[in-house]
Write a protein that binds this DNA or RNA. Structure first.
Lengths: 252, 252
DNA sequence: AATTTTCATTTGTCTGACATTTAAAAGTCT
DNA sequence: AGACTTTTAAATGTCAGACAAATGAAAATT
């Protein structure tokens, strides 16, 4: 590669002398996004980059670490090593999406209702597609999670985790990886908020009934019924959260 | 803060001696996500962190740059400077979401149909909410973008950009910031794919008609009609893309 | 009391060095 | 000649020490 821009060496804005590593990271990021650097292409060695950008190696390294944090590059040691443009896979994208969403929710005092509304609105978008395309495997996963949710001594955390797994199977049923990626954040980021709810045996029972109805509807490829049941589930979840909030205000 | 973990100094896994900076970044990241470090809290100075983790300052700095790349911390020079836990705002989250989504689509040979299906499925999820809650301001934005789209000498890129602005106003109309954040990626990441389509005067006209119908339906708070028109728009968009693909196969 | 100066702290950057990993090249033995 | 071992070169990973630059607080001055 070159990372050239007009002349032989890439220019970095001399107006903003602060944060050289950020500028270099941006220059390389641009080269990747714009397609000047393609997947699996090797970047110049750190020494060469130091030369090209006229900075020291530690500065180049800081820039590369920034890119590595975004999974834009991967590094490999050894004779044929170096930094390579990373193929951003769906798995990596999921992970980033989830951590960003989780932080966003926890740091911005997003209300349970707002998050819940967003999550179910998005999930309902998957319902018709999932009814059409869900595989037997995905249906089996959902049944298995429902079975797990019915186990007695299950902790609230484990119940929530199983709930997330159930809903992910529902989303994956749409057979659209882009959709699955987008919703990973919405579904998973809700878990910390859901964990604040203590599920009574009664409420678990109710949720399991609704989950079973969803699975049944998917089995019959009845998208409308999936959608209607998701609405019920949303309403019930919000009611549970309200009860918890009320109970905390008046703990007597 | 402490970043302690049991004893006074945080332990980092001695099993994986490679990539110390990644381990340190993860340790601090965990401290932030778990709430041990709260927003705006100052981290120890780089020198102190070097001591705590028993590594050199450059290594600590690489770790901090990783976190800065994820907008988890910000740094400030000077006597009272240092690294501070950053409040991840919706703006930062949007940006990250968009770059990740764009890269994901461009690097994984996602078909136009798949991306398009995901985008419209998600957008339709906003339709009923937007019909309820859209403000006069958001409606005005949409009308203005429609007006712009009707200008003659508009380039395809500018037309696409206006299209994105129109759809973002629609999404924002739902009045749910979490939803807006989630959909930012889906809508914006489509733009590079949309740019591959060359819009004839005829097809622009058709799109503008549909956009106008959507705006009218939102004005009347008719969610069902917004949804129905979005379906039409999706079908039309996919048809346009198919025509382009066919034209390329048989360029005579 | 207000202003200016000094100063200590902290991040940003550079230089140079050594350790570690890795694959290819060179060498050695059968 | 072919298979195995050793050497070597290139690259990242890490460290130590130093200086520059920014910045707010303390000290000195008016």
């Amino acid at each position: 590669m070159k990372i050239t821009y007009g002349s032989r060496k890439m220019k970095i804005d001399p107006q903003k002398p602060a944060d050289l590593s950020a500028q270099i990271a941006q220059a390389i990021r641009d080269a990747i996004v714009s397609g000047k650097l393609i997947v699996d292409e090797r970047l110049p060695s750190e020494a060469e980059l130091s030369d090209q950008f006229n900075v020291s190696r530690p500065t180049v390294r800081e820039a590369l670490k920034r890119l590595a944090a975004q999974s834009l590059i991967r590094t490999q040691r050894g004779a044929t090593g170096g930094a390579f443009v990373n193929r951003l896979g769906f798995e990596d994208a999921y992970t980033q999406q989830i951590t960003t969403s989780t932080l966003l929710l926890s740091m911005n005092a997003v209300s349970f209702d707002t998050a819940c509304e967003a999550r179910y609105a998005l999930e309902r978008a998957c319902a018709p597609l999932s009814a059409h395309r869900r595989t037997a495997d995905q249906l089996a996963t959902m049944r298995a999670e429902i079975f797990r949710q019915a186990q007695p001594g299950l902790t609230d955390e484990a119940f929530c985790a199983s709930d997330v797994a159930f809903h992910r199977a529902l989303v994956d049923g749409a057979g659209n990886p882009v959709l699955s990626y987008q919703l990973a954040g919405a579904v998973e980021a809700m878990q910390p908020l859901m964990n604040m709810i203590t599920f009574t045996a009664r409420s678990r029972e109710e949720i399991i009934v609704l989950h079973t109805q969803i699975a049944d509807a998917l089995e019959n490829r009845d998208g409308d019924r999936v959608d209607a049941t998701l609405v019920k589930l949303e309403n019930y979840t919000r009611k549970l959260a309200q009860d918890v909030a009320q109970q905390r205000r008046k703990p007597a």
